[in-house]
């Protein structure tokens, strides 16, 4: 119960826009998108653990500088909770198949590489989503030719995830005060899941309804083109940052291949 609750709380925060005050917040969204794709490309293309570790160190220090330590820690904890059963399973599998030291060492090396890759990719995603306003993401999607409708739908879906997760936490709290988790046989567990998911689905449907009405009355989607009141300026700082990203990507690929 408490583990679920911690996990949900972390999850609910993952996609929430955090702060503009950091140095990453001052960059153009497009620059940050380049940074994200550079990180993901390195994670995919590179096999050398050293290079991957250096990349991870770069992204980790950027995350720590622009997002709070606690949030980064909670992201990493959630990821680890999520993947630990898989790691455990691969070890058990490998021990049953060929219980030798060399195969265990080989497995550990590939598990370590996989973890580092996963961390790079999630930090790259995380840095982008948490330091970029949802509206800016929609604008970028729009500027590369995706109709505004879908860009905005994507943003609403992201926002919705965290709202639903916080509803879920609230429902778990409520049903806990009603003694939902006292009796522990199979039938009552089944019933417990009803007590949580029925209210969750109903509140989600209510929210969808509200969002739909709000969009409709604002004339959303009446016009395929829209104008923007605000827009970010791609400045000197951004040019430098993009160049650094591309240089980093080139060096990483040069050393890996």
């Amino acid at each position: 119960m408490s583990l679920t609750s911690i996990y949900l709380r972390n999850l609910s925060q993952i996609f929430l826009f955090y702060s503009e005050k950091s140095f990453l917040g001052k960059l153009h969204p497009l620059t940050k998108a380049v940074l994200m794709f550079a990180g993901i490309a390195i994670a995919f293309l590179c096999n050398k653990l050293v290079v991957l570790l250096l990349t991870l160190a770069t992204f980790l220090s950027m995350a720590l500088l622009s997002i709070s330590v606690k949030r980064v820690a909670s992201l990493i904890t959630s990821l680890m909770i999520f993947i630990s059963p898989m790691i455990l399973f691969s070890y058990i599998y490998s021990i049953f198949r060929s219980p030798s030291t060399t195969s265990l060492i080989g497995l550990s090396a590939s598990v370590a590489t996989a973890i580092v890759r996963l961390l790079i990719m999630s930090l790259a995603f995380y840095i982008f989503f948490i330091t970029t306003k949802p509206q800016s993401i929609a604008r970028i999607l729009n500027s590369i030719g995706i109709p505004y409708k879908y860009g905005h739908g994507f943003v609403i879906a992201l926002r919705f995830l965290s709202v639903i997760a916080s509803d879920l936490i609230e429902i778990l709290h409520i049903q806990k005060t009603r003694g939902l988790f006292i009796r522990r046989n199979f039938l009552s567990r089944l019933r417990s899941s009803f007590a949580v998911f029925v209210p969750l689905i109903i509140s989600a449907l209510n929210r969808v309804d509200e969002v739909t009405i709000a969009l409709e009355v604002k004339g959303f989607g009446l016009n395929s083109k829209r104008s923007y009141l605000y827009s970010e300026v791609f400045g000197f700082r951004d040019a430098i940052a993009v160049l650094l990203c591309l240089a980093g990507l080139a060096i990483a690929i040069r050393f890996c291949i």
Binding site: E170, T177, G179, I182, F194, A195, P199, I202
Partner: peptide
């Protein structure tokens, strides 16, 4: 325990729909 808490406190959240199932 959860049982003690349920016995001692009645908690009414502002959103009644989060209870109903």
């Amino acid at each position: 325990s959860d049982a003690d808490l349920a016995r001692l406190v009645g908690y009414v959240h502002q959103n009644p729909w989060l209870y109903m199932f």
